[in-house]
């Protein structure tokens, strides 16, 4: 049972950071949505906020980890240019995808979208974590801020989801080895 360092970094980027962020989303969303005075007692809100702050900062850190490992570690392997005269493109995923009409869109649409849109997730997640940390219990009485945070959080999830989904498909069709 072997795994190369490139494959290991791809797993850390996608299955580690990326999947963890997406899995944590449901908990964060439930926590954010339920910050309402009519649903939770004052003590309940305080207790919930401790978990929520820790969870949201962890999610923001994970989202940064995902894009940084993706852009600076995995992506250079993906886009590496094959030496002149190379016929076996197995180790050059970008060129392997572009070599066939049936797979070219995985790069032109999938990878191009993934590599850009994924960066919106950590920005949005950091904003949410920061506002929750600064305002704390005050948010239970401010539905406008809560609603805006929910939208940012959902957009963080959707952008991470798009990036994760295309990452999984592309790594299936033209894996980084």
């Amino acid at each position: 049972m072997e795994i190369s360092s490139k494959e290991l970094w791809t797993v850390i980027h996608g299955m580690g950071f990326g999947a963890l962020f997406l899995l944590a989303f449901a908990g964060g969303l439930a926590g954010l949505y339920s910050l309402r005075p009519e649903w939770v007692t004052v003590e309940g809100v305080k207790e919930r906020l401790i978990r929520l702050k820790a969870g949201l900062w962890a999610m923001a850190a994970i989202a940064w980890g995902t894009v940084l490992t993706g852009t600076y570690i995995v992506y250079p392997w993906y886009r590496a240019k094959p030496p002149e005269g190379t016929t076996d493109l197995m180790n050059f995923p970008r060129y392997l995808l572009l070599a066939s009409e049936s797979t070219a869109e995985w790069h032109k649409f999938g990878m191009e979208w993934k590599e850009h849109v994924g960066w919106i997730a950590p920005i949005a997640a950091t904003v949410v974590a920061y506002v929750i940390s600064v305002y704390g219990t005050q948010l239970t009485g401010d539905s406008k801020i809560r609603r805006a945070l929910l939208w940012f959080f959902i957009i963080a999830f959707v952008t991470a989801g798009v990036a994760g989904m295309f990452g999984a498909f592309i790594n299936k069709i033209a894996p980084v080895r």
Partner: peptide, 17 residues
């Protein structure tokens, strides 16, 4: 707290995007 800090964080997030 006034809502300015929250507004600033959200608008800056939009500007970054």
């Amino acid at each position: 707290l006034p809502n300015g800090l929250a507004a600033a964080a959200l608008l800056a997030g939009g500007i970054g995007s």
